[in-house]
């Protein structure tokens, strides 16, 4: 079992119910084949960076799933067939997540060896502050 993220863009004219219907169908495909849904996130309508099928905006939906190659193949086939879906991307996430954990544990070990809290406790927070 591997972790994937599938993000797709739905036609901006599609209603909320239509999006829910698509989500429901995909959910059924994934769980039916033994996959596991970790998250379904409707990211709302966004402007596209470039025109896709003459649309300037689209509704983004993000699925985080645990699945294998066959399930992904089937889900992608479905997405291709659906008229409302104008673009999709599948990204494998488990390798990245594993890498972060390795880095994080290494960093913690190092901080413990130094035995002092001279580094900011949460780097993510300081990064956010810097962005603002």
């Amino acid at each position: 079992m591997r972790n994937y993220e599938i993000m797709f863009i739905v036609n901006p004219n599609a209603t909320d119910e239509e999006i829910d219907k698509i989500n429901g169908q995909l959910e059924a495909v994934i769980t039916g084949a033994g996959g596991e849904i970790q998250k379904i996130e409707k990211m709302g309508k966004r402007r596209l960076a470039y025109d896709v099928d003459k649309f300037r905006e689209g509704s983004y939906v993000l699925f985080a799933i645990g699945a294998n190659g066959d399930i992904i193949k089937e889900v992608e086939r479905r997405l291709r067939v659906m008229d409302a879906v104008i673009k999709y991307i599948t990204v494998r996430t488990d390798e990245d997540v594993r890498r972060f954990e390795k880095i994080r544990s290494y960093r913690q070990k190092r901080a413990a060896r130094r035995g002092s809290g001279e580094r900011p406790a949460s780097p993510a927070q300081s990064a956010e502050e810097a962005m603002q």
């Binding site: 990245d96 972060f100 880095i103 960093r107 780097p123 993510a124 990064a127 810097a130 962005m131």
Partner: peptide, 14 residues
């Protein structure tokens, strides 16, 4: 410097 581990494709702002 900022210890950003994950460079995620969804993070448009970054």
């Amino acid at each position: 410097v900022e210890r950003i581990d994950s460079i995620n494709y969804k993070d448009v702002k970054l």
